[in-house]
Design a protein around this nucleic acid. Structure first.
Length: 282
DNA sequence: CTAGGATCCTGTCAGC
DNA sequence: TGCTGACAGGATCCTA
């Protein structure tokens, strides 16, 4: 589901609507989607750590929200603001059968929808956010990391395929299945390449590519998300705005025209151009 | 310690 | 039509 750019988009969009508003009521429709005891309080800040969203209240409590694969947040005030896992129900009547939690800000509900129930909202003390078991393990994001740092980490996991390594949030934070494929394609690296065979130069390029693809998505993500929501029944296509390889299987590579293929790496569907991304091992 | 696979859960789609 | 298995924008747990 939502990777760093989507969560950043949610953060920016949601800030406009719920900052300084009071969370007055919580309705839990699925017990495993909400961890802790519901709280009330005024929204003081909205932060993001990797793919995790933090809503700080003015009473020392914070809500940590992780959308995992299929989470969505849909604010239904005067206008509707929806972001997260894209699907038709952004424009549905709400709540629907995938609604797990409803947070109410006065009369305006914020729906937490999550088809597969992997995501969650968790209440934690604001001063303990950074020591949370999940948060504290997160590595730096690509913008905070140097190529040398990345290179060193790759050497530590030299036998893992590079895609598996960059999907690990404790190694580099923010990439998910889409942006891992996009960054590897932009860097002309085959996803199955053993991490230990990545050169310093490639690590530098990979880091730059990761920044680029996510920045582009953040730029287009906000506006296209809004467009998606307003669309009259048509499916959102914001992936098409920036994806050059993800879900392009069967289509010609944008660089060389070779047919893009889909393979399986690290248990995940993976898209490559067999011509641009060559294996260097075996 | 690393590496790989199963697992959580619901829904959809391709292939009988 | 109905069934079955594969798979899905994530992360953890278990095993070797």
């Amino acid at each position: 589901m939502p990777e760093l750019p989507e969560v950043e988009t949610i953060k920016r969009g949601l800030s406009k609507f719920i900052l300084k508003k009071k969370l007055t009521k919580t309705t839990i429709l699925c017990a495993k989607s909400f961890i802790g005891t519901p709280v009330t309080g005024t929204v003081k800040a909205i932060r993001r750590y990797g793919k995790a969203l933090i809503i700080d209240l003015d009473n020392g409590k914070s809500l940590m929200i992780h959308l995992r694969m299929t989470g969505q947040l849909i604010y239904d005030g005067k206008e509707r603001y929806a972001a997260g896992h894209p699907s038709d129900n952004f424009t549905d009547k709400l709540p629907n059968k995938q609604t797990r939690v409803i947070l109410e800000f006065g009369s305006d509900p914020l729906y937490f929808n999550d088809q597969r129930k992997f995501g969650f909202i968790k209440v934690i003390d604001t001063d303990k956010v950074e020591s949370d078991e999940f948060i504290k393990k997160l590595a730096k994001e690509p913008w905070q990391m140097t190529a040398d740092e990345l290179y060193e980490k790759l050497q530590k996991h030299k036998n893992s395929p590079i895609k598996a390594t960059i999907l690990d949030q404790t190694i580099i934070c923010g990439l998910g299945n889409i942006y891992a494929d996009e960054a590897l394609f932009a860097s002309k690296i085959h996803p199955e390449t053993k991490s230990g065979l990545i050169t310093k130069k490639e690590a530098e390029l990979l880091l730059k590519s990761a920044r680029d693809v996510m920045e582009k998505s953040i730029e287009s993500g906000g506006s296209t998300m809004a467009t998606y929501v307003r669309a009259d029944g048509t499916k959102g296509d914001y992936l098409e705005k920036f994806a050059k390889i993800f879900r392009h299987e069967g289509k010609p590579c944008v660089n060389c025209g070779e047919k893009v293929v889909k393979i399986r790496v690290a248990g995940r569907g993976t898209h490559i151009c067999p011509n641009c991304q060559r294996r260097k091992d075996d």
